[in-house]
């Protein structure tokens, strides 16, 4: 059963000189207790999707259509003050690069506690107590709740962010590039922590990242986004072993493998499109070796091609034929 349903979400940014069509017709479901990955290049709309769900879009950003169903309520229709009651209590978010995500002049304990005192009617002392136990939960020394953000290292600050996100026991957590700014070893530790917490607390998590190896480590299912649209969505296994979209395959082969035969670096030629004037039809077509007139004219339909496997491509069959042929 799904805890969060996103249907046909479309978000545009209305800037002074142009409109950026950041997210269009994005649909996916987050199941209870699962970790869903949201992957893609920088600027593909992953963060915008996350901010849309939380209704935290910056000025100029507007959700034009779609539904976001959480606990049988459509978040799109909620006003800001209604969202305030929902934020952090039902769904919270862990931001990337926690360098400035924490207020530098307020003690971390206060920052964790204020979410609690705001949402639940507990005393400040109780809130601080909860902050301490949350610190222990994420592997931090609970006596450090009275410290300031700059007194923590990068990895520790990320733990603080995670502790803070769990303060009101939400059922859904969005992790937006939680380990991107950290070095590899710390990365591994934080990912381990996230997995462990998810298991222990039964959280449903959306893991946003551009790093496919992080997805492989942590998620069960993943949605690959490109230029504001979902190119492919399926189980991690399916995506890696049985991709139906040329972009997905390109992403996967872009990672050189430590084992296997030596080969040249492959990457996707070209650049991600300018979202103020995206390509016609399939947005990937300028960079796709399989593109033809249909791709230039028509936006591919987002269709079901297997057990819980969706893809948006005109020529998946042709592409897979060649792929399977190469593999033999």
């Amino acid at each position: 059963m799904s805890v969060l349903d996103v249907k046909d979400l479309t978000t545009h940014f209305f800037m002074q000189e142009a409109v950026a069509r950041a997210v269009e017709d994005v649909s996916f479901s987050l199941r209870k207790g699962e970790m869903l990955g949201l992957a893609g290049e920088s600027g593909c709309g992953k963060t915008t999707t996350a901010l849309s769900i939380m209704k935290l879009l910056p000025p100029g950003g507007r959700i034009l259509k779609g539904e976001i169903i959480l606990d049988e309520e459509d978040l799109v229709k909620k006003t800001d003050s209604e969202m305030n009651a929902i934020r952090w209590k039902k769904i919270s978010i862990v931001f990337q690069g926690a360098m400035n995500a924490l207020n530098p002049v307020i003690r971390v304990g206060d920052q964790v506690a204020e979410a609690v005192t705001e949402k639940e009617s507990v005393s400040k002392a109780e809130a601080w107590q909860r902050a301490r136990s949350l610190f222990e939960l994420v592997g931090l020394d609970s006596s450090r709740v009275a410290d300031y953000p700059h007194e923590f290292s990068g990895g520790m600050r990320q733990r603080v962010m995670i502790a803070m996100a769990l303060a009101c026991s939400p059922s859904v957590v969005i992790a937006d590039e939680p380990v991107t700014a950290l070095d590899v070893i710390v990365q591994a530790r934080i990912l381990e922590l996230i997995k462990e917490l998810q298991r222990k607390l039964g959280l449903s998590v959306i893991m946003i990242t551009h790093d496919l190896s992080v997805i492989a480590e942590t998620c069960e299912r993943v949605a690959i986004m490109y230029a504001g649209r979902i190119a492919e969505l399926g189980s991690v296994n399916d995506i890696y072993k049985d991709p139906w979209h040329p972009y997905t395959e390109a992403l996967i082969t872009a990672f050189p493998s430590l084992v296997g035969p030596k080969r040249r670096f492959s990457s996707v030629p070209g650049d991600p499109p300018d979202l103020t004037s995206p390509p016609s039809g399939c947005r990937f077509h300028p960079r796709c070796p399989w593109q033809d007139e249909t791709c230039r004219d028509q936006n591919p339909e987002y269709r079901n091609v297997g057990a819980d496997h969706y893809v948006a491509c005109h020529h998946s069959e042709k592409f897979r034929e060649k792929l399977l042929g190469e593999r033999v």
Binding site: M83, I93, F95, G97, N100, L102, P104, E118
Partner: peptide
């Protein structure tokens, strides 16, 4: 600054 977004994400009132 980023921490302003964090504060809003926590669902704090505008005044706070």
């Amino acid at each position: 600054e980023d921490y302003m977004l964090t504060a809003k994400a926590k669902g704090l009132s505008n005044r706070k």
